[in-house]
Amino acid sequence: MNTLPHMGELVKKRILEKKLSFAEVCRRINVKQPVMNGYFFSPTLQTSIIWKISIAIEHNLFADLIEKLPSNVQNANHTAFQQTIQRQEEEIKDLKKEIVIYKEILKNK
């Protein structure tokens, strides 16, 4: 079984990478410094807290969590997404062919 990532450490790491002060992030999410310090030591955080911090630091912490999932879990929804992309790519190819035909028609007028 994969180890659960320590959310508090991840949050702290991302804030430091963004070169933001903890005080600034506290202001942005409207919490006091001791509350933020508590987050850093917490292995888990509520979704709403992760959401607020993600917005405050302009970094998708949920994506960080997804990257830590086993690949078979990461890609569970991938198939439907890939099918949509493939259909759109085929449609683009057909539309490009149509454009070439229309250009030829216009050129021959």
Rank of each mutant, 00 (worst) to 15 (best):
E67L: 14
L65D: 07
L95K: 15
Y39W: 12
K68Y: 02
S71I: 14
V11E: 04
E89H: 09
R14F: 04
G38P: 00
I85F: 06
L45W: 06
T79K: 15
A76Y: 14
F40S: 03
T44H: 06
A63L: 14
L4H: 03
A23F: 08
L61V: 09
G8A: 03
E89I: 05
G8T: 03
L20P: 00
K52R: 15
S42V: 02
H78F: 12
E67H: 13
I92R: 12
E89T: 08
A80N: 13
L69T: 00
E17L: 15
V31S: 02
N75Y: 10
F40E: 04
K109I: 15
I55Q: 08
L61D: 03
S48N: 15
T3P: 02
N75L: 14
Q86A: 14
E98A: 11
K52P: 04
S54T: 07
V31Q: 05
I99W: 06
Q74C: 09
R27A: 15
Q88C: 05
T3A: 10
N60S: 11
K19V: 01
L45N: 04
P34C: 06
N30S: 14
Y39P: 02
K93Q: 10
M7F: 15
A23R: 15
I50G: 00
N108T: 08
I66P: 02
C26Y: 05
N30P: 02
E104N: 14
N77C: 07
V100M: 08
D94L: 14
K107F: 13
R27V: 05
F62D: 01
F40N: 02
A76G: 03
I105T: 09
S21P: 02
A80L: 12
L16K: 15
P43E: 13
P43V: 04
Q86D: 12
P34H: 08
